[in-house]
């Protein structure tokens, strides 16, 4: 992941010749694409094709075996450490702190992010949209998997992400939760970069661009 530059006014995510091997077994090879602020990219493919792996590479959680991923703002490469506080990720792989309440999780993670983009009205609005306002002071250990998934959305959206990664976006969610996610996905891609990894054709249809991984 290249790191330099600072401005974040208009962002572009560029992947060039990206490939990933695990124990010398290739997961995918030679992926090249670009997605900018105001656009959404659907990553599709069968189970095990490497959709989640690609999202981890794009977010800097994994290093590609080949190729490179860069973020550009106003033509220059942007430092990942500068971008990190404005990145959102919802995935079954990302876990929360069970010993903290929902609002404490948000507070703790926001302080570690060092972000000043979290406003109290926005937080309250997100808790209400995802129907967790009445449970915000309860420990996460008492939450169902669907409620944890809703909380992950609140954590990912509270700091107005410039890049939002959604891995299996409606997994564990009921109909109301899935509707809320769809509305937010369409809203976020008006100004930010949205990348969605999914097998569901309806979720892929949220996005204007599409890339298929695997055979």
């Amino acid at each position: 992941m290249e790191t330099r530059g600072h401005s974040l006014t208009r962002l572009a995510l560029r992947a060039k010749g990206v490939g990933k091997d695990f124990n010398r077994r290739p997961v995918f090879r030679d992926l090249t694409f670009e997605v900018s602020s105001g656009e959404a990219l659907a990553v599709t493919g069968k189970n095990g094709a490497g959709k989640s792996t690609l999202l981890k590479i794009l977010s800097g959680l994994l290093t590609p075996t080949k190729g490179r991923v860069t973020y550009h703002a106003d033509g220059s490469i942007t430092d990942l450490d500068v971008l990190r506080p404005r990145m959102g990720f919802v995935s079954p792989y990302l876990q929360l702190y069970d010993e903290f309440s929902a609002s404490e999780n948000l507070d703790v993670l926001s302080r570690i992010r060092s972000t000043d983009h979290v406003s109290q009205p926005k937080v309250e609005s997100l808790f209400r949209i995802f129907n967790l306002w009445h449970r915000r002071h309860d420990d996460v250990r008492t939450f169902s998997s669907g409620m944890k998934q809703r909380l992950k959305y609140i954590l990912a959206l509270a700091h107005d992400p410039l890049v939002l990664f959604l891995d299996e976006p409606t997994a564990n969610l009921d109909e109301d939760g899935a509707d809320a996610v769809r509305t937010i996905a369409l809203e976020v891609q008006q100004s930010s970069i949205l990348v969605v990894a999914t097998n569901d054709e309806r979720e892929a249809a949220w996005c204007g661009k599409r890339i298929h991984v695997g055979p």
């Binding site: 990145m87 792989y93 990302l94 929360l96 069970d98 993670l109």
Partner: peptide, 16 residues
């Protein structure tokens, strides 16, 4: 063990 290391990796730099 709790699976929170990925969450930390996402929000903070390794030096932090």
């Amino acid at each position: 063990e709790r699976g929170t290391s990925l969450t930390l990796q996402l929000i903070a730099s390794p030096s932090v």
